[in-house]
Design a protein around this nucleic acid. Structure first.
Length: 706
DNA sequence: AAAACTCCTCTTTTT
DNA sequence: GAGGAGTTTT
């Protein structure tokens, strides 16, 4: 395709973005505004206009899926083969750099990559050794990861710690964790980024090489970058400053994973003279959907103002339906899907049901089954996270990297081969005493000093067998990773150890390793969480709001719009987290092309308790004129909703929220049902047992929060 | 060292 | 209400 035709079909803002080739550019791309289109067209345009090879452009995404899509689009625009191009995820790009250069940092090039699960296992091991309550490992792992992605090392953290002892302990664990990783010749996900950054900082000649190589840089989903990623980019781009970042601060929903929206603001400051282009024309949804979503997100205080519009017209109203229980909600969803389907305008694959937490799918699944509606669940446990898959991969990793203690511990007795805790701890001791990895320690002790390990001839035999297994497979020359995996599975007898379903997963693993070299496969497995694209069945899609990001469907249900579900109860006492919940809803709503349906239920069972639920605060920001309210429940009716909406909700700063308990001097303890009015006129309705619902003016009522 | 039992936790999760 | 992990039992 000639370069000028790459401009065809782009709107004026998109063209601007494409033609601004030199210097920093921030594209604020609203939902559905065609950002992938812009990036791939610009990539293709640069190749043509500047006569570059695709190795001169560095483009990062967050997911493998996004990277593959981008490659495909560029390839179809230019006819060029994108293999060997620098289009990939942050982690894979960094890994690629490190596989060539990590010697400079004192690691060897066949390092293992640890995922969150491996990371947690190692941290647990350290906590056990330090005699710190082991159950804390998840929280500790999360905090260490947060520190790493903010580029705070253990030493630095210690000097800023709280001085109450806990942070000091955390710093010790962190320090130890970092050392252990190095001993294992392993990098966790955060290291992939941080070590590349450090490498660049410490070795200017290496940095220069990559700066010269990459004349242009693209970043997709920029709002999701963490601080380390930002610094990496800033450094890489600092020489020529030809960097295009594309993002939408309104769709930042991974704060809990370290994503830092303020990078969007940092960019403007650090790259002075950066051009900002807003993409506000939406090619996905109807105007009603955009207005509803826009009104909800507008309540967030700190954001880059955007006003999405579409040429598609108003479309159908946004439906809202309040049901009395989660079962009725599910029933309503199933019935609505059936009605739409029977009218013939939509296939099952056109529907998506989005929810905040995975358990919400259960009720929906049940009713869809009852109605005979096919469905599929997206997300959930990623393929490569399954236990059986991770076990086999651990064999492969130990074979490739004998220092990998985490993998060693994982498989030494899996499948069970009679090497228990006692033996393992003897190996651990030997390793510690002689500063060796577990596998080395086992090997050399077996040669020189069997008595340190053996209790019986039996155990000695088993240990020798294990060593032979690892070394035999390590020295074998396999043509593909699949052959190696098969060999591992046969030699360990792993198949007998697991049930049929898990065996099918093992088959799938082997299939995914066909035609792939061993190192390539190990890399792929480490950085790929899901097997790519499940076949597109004609079925209703169920998934969390997070999983839905980047997808679109003609008909979308966002369910569970209740206080405590969306916003989720854990977010309730932090404004930042409430704002993130709001963005989550925004992401969900903007997935819809034609029809958006919002539901909530007055009663829901969460884990073991049945709870009464109040409508989500976000519902009160929805402009009434875009909506059709369907009342199905009389008990906790939304009939009060329009009344509540009249209050200026931006000023609704209430000491109480619906559902909290208060004490009144005369009527005793009651439950707050509603808060409205502002300033001097703030009122609440409170339900007092045996007395009933009372309206109270806050100023006079003399309530006490309990 | 395996089996049986009990306890605990349960938000989201791109790599 | 279930799955995973740790602890006790055999």
């Amino acid at each position: 395709m000639p370069k000028d035709s790459l401009l065809e079909g782009l709107n004026p803002q998109q063209r601007d973005a494409l033609l601004h080739t030199e210097g920093p550019l921030l594209i604020l791309a609203g939902a559905g505004s065609g950002k992938t289109r812009v990036i791939s067209h610009k990539f293709a345009y640069l190749l043509k206009a500047k006569r570059l090879t695709n190795k001169s452009i560095f483009a990062v995404t967050f997911t493998n899926k996004a990277a593959n899509e981008m490659k495909e689009r560029i390839s179809s625009l230019t006819g060029k083969d994108m293999h060997g191009s620098w289009v990939g995820t942050f982690h894979s790009q960094c890994s690629k750099i490190l596989r060539k250069t990590i010697d400079a940092m004192g690691y060897s090039r066949d390092f293992s990559i640890y995922d969150d699960d491996d990371q947690r296992n190692l941290i647990r091991h350290i906590l056990r050794e330090f005699k710190i309550h082991e159950a804390l490992y998840r929280g500790v792992a999360a905090r260490i990861s947060a520190l790493k992605s903010s580029l705070i090392g253990p030493e630095e953290f210690l000097s800023t710690g709280d001085g109450f002892g806990f942070d000091e302990k955390l710093a010790r664990v962190y320090l130890r964790y970092r050392d252990e990783l190095k001993k294992c010749n392993a990098l966790d996900f955060d290291d992939l980024i941080c070590l590349t950054l450090t490498l660049f900082e410490k070795h200017p000649e290496i940095l220069k090489k990559y700066q010269d190589e990459f004349q242009y840089i693209f970043v997709d989903e920029f709002q999701d970058t963490n601080y380390a990623q930002y610094r990496f980019l800033r450094l890489l781009a600092s020489a020529h400053r030809n960097v295009t970042v594309v993002g939408d601060d309104d769709q930042s929903i991974y704060r809990f994973r370290g994503a830092d929206v303020t990078n969007v603001f940092r960019f403007e400051k650090d790259f002075t003279g950066a051009r900002i282009i807003r993409l506000e024309q939406n090619y996905r949804s109807t105007q009603n959907i955009l207005d509803v979503a826009g009104a909800v997100i507008a309540r967030n205080p700190i954001r880059k103002e955007k006003k999405l519009w579409t040429g598609r017209g108003c479309g159908e109203r946004v439906y809202h339906c309040w049901l009395s229980s989660e079962d009725e909600e599910a029933q309503h969803i199933a019935k609505t899907i059936k009605d739409f389907y029977l009218k013939g305008a939509y296939e099952y694959r056109d529907f998506a049901v989005l929810y905040r937490v995975n358990i919400q799918s259960r009720a929906v699944e049940e009713k869809l089954r009852d109605e005979g509606i096919p469905y599929r669940i997206l997300g959930g446990i990623a393929f490569y996270q399954r236990k059986e898959i991770k076990d086999i991969i651990a064999y492969m990793r130990l074979i490739l990297n004998h220092y990998d203690n985490v993998s060693f511990r994982r498989i030494i007795n899996c499948p069970p081969r009679g090497i228990g805790a006692a033996t393992l701890s003897r190996i651990e001791q030997e390793a510690k005493k002689r500063s060796l990895s577990l596998f080395e320690a086992l090997k050399s002790t077996m040669k020189t000093n069997k008595s340190a390990l053996k209790k019986s001839q039996d155990i000695t035999d088993r240990l020798e067998q294990f060593i032979r297994l690892i070394e035999d497979v390590a020295s074998e020359k396999y043509k593909t990773a699949a052959e190696m995996l098969k060999d591992i599975i046969d030699r360990t007898g792993y198949r007998e150890f697991i049930d049929e379903e898990r065996n099918e997963n093992v088959d799938e693993l082997i299939a995914s390793a066909a035609n792939t070299g061993i190192k390539d496969f190990a890399e792929k497995v480490a950085l790929l969480t899901n097997l790519d694209d499940s076949p597109k069945e004609n079925a209703v899609s169920l998934m969390t709001l997070h999983t839905a990001k980047g997808l679109e469907f003609p008909v979308v249900f966002v369910i569970g719009l209740e206080e405590g579900v969306l916003p989720y109860f854990k977010a309730l006492d932090s404004p930042d987290e409430i704002n993130e919940e709001r963005r989550l809803l925004y992401v969900g709503m903007t997935r819809a092309k034609d029809v958006l349906l919002l539901t909530g239920a007055g009663k829901r069972r969460l884990y073991t308790k049945v709870q009464n639920q109040e409508p989500s605060r976000f519902l009160f920001d929805v402009p009434k004129e875009c909506c059709q309210w369907i009342e199905k429940s009389t008990r906790t009716s939304l009939a009060q909703a329009p009344a509540r909406r009249d209050a200026d909700s931006s000023k609704r700063v209430f000491p109480y929220v619906a559902g909290c308990r208060v004490r009144h001097p005369k009527w005793g303890v009651g439950v707050v049902r509603d808060c409205y009015g502002d300033g001097e006129e703030q009122k609440v309705t409170v339900n007092f047992p045996n007395i009933g619902i009372k309206k109270l003016v806050l100023r006079f009522a003399n309530l006490e929060k309990i």
